[in-house]
Amino acid sequence: MARILLAEDEDVLRMLVLDTLEDEGYTIDEATDGDEAYQKIMSETYDLVLLDYMMPGMTGLEVIEKVRQHPEKQELKIMMLTAKSQQSDRERAEEIGANYFFSKPFSPLELIDVVGGILSDNQMDQ
């Protein structure tokens, strides 16, 4: 089954995503800030990373920037969970290597669809 890393500082939101996706059968790792997220990305292998934009420590953007410096992490799929849906932020994030965006507040069902879509693409690619 696909492994997902969830990096989100708000306990309630992390719990919600966890509750939503765990029931779909994904294996989910948690990170509560940017630094933790970066460490987990570098030490483990994930099929998808859900990354909050605003986090203590490194922000989501900073995490992407750092991760993408490593050649073996170029293909890692990263989806940003962001309240800041402004176009400029998205452009900046895409530039440095974010693959997908998902706006808060979000619908859990939609999240399931999107994540499912991404991961099935993944499997199809394989």
């Binding site: 708000e10 309630v12 939101l13 719990m15 919600l16 509750d19 939503t20 309240a83 808060k104 507040p105 979000f106 619908s107 859990p108």
Partner: peptide
Amino acid sequence: LRTPLSSIYGY
């Protein structure tokens, strides 16, 4: 506001 709203909405 978005955080509590998100969780209420989601749950």
